[in-house]
Amino acid sequence: MQLHRTLVTKLLLVTALMFGFGFALVPLYDVFCEVTGINGKTSNVPATALVDGVDTSREITIEFLARPNKDMPWIFKPEIRRLTVHPGEVHVMNYFAENPTAQMIVGQAVPSVSPGQAALYLHKIECFCFTQQQLAAGRNMLMPVQFYVDPALPAQFSTITLNYTLYDVTANWQGNAATENLGE
């Protein structure tokens, strides 16, 4: 019986560890995607280090897309559709958002870059997607994103698409939306 008990204990330990591993996959997945830049995930942390050299030898086309999620009533679109930049140059682009409903709504934008591998090279210094955004009934606002393309971007990429999906997160709003855009 003692013989069985030690083995059973070990096997139960494996079971428990694997249960934990299932949950550990959640942060592992995020870290993995962030480090490798696959999945088109961009960093949630503002990029600080400004690069010195602007690479004027080549031009990169940045395409901007915006998509309100199916349950999100806001009007949401980029100010311009595309922009041609040199790697290293810092640019600011505005997204327009309007809340046409009669209630205050909080939104959260989630960025996604295509092709996925280029996500590592698109750095955002400032972005409305870093925080939740709040709009009172009938109000609108311009939401900026300040970014640059890393000069280390591999030569195979000449066009990068930056897409934002906007979600209605009013239901679990913590009351900490950074830009309290109540429209004054």
Partner: peptide
């Protein structure tokens, strides 16, 4: 079984 059934349990829990 003991390696992957717990992962399934994790998935349904999530």
């Amino acid at each position: 079984l003991i390696m992957v059934m717990p992962v399934l349990a994790g998935a349904v829990t999530m």
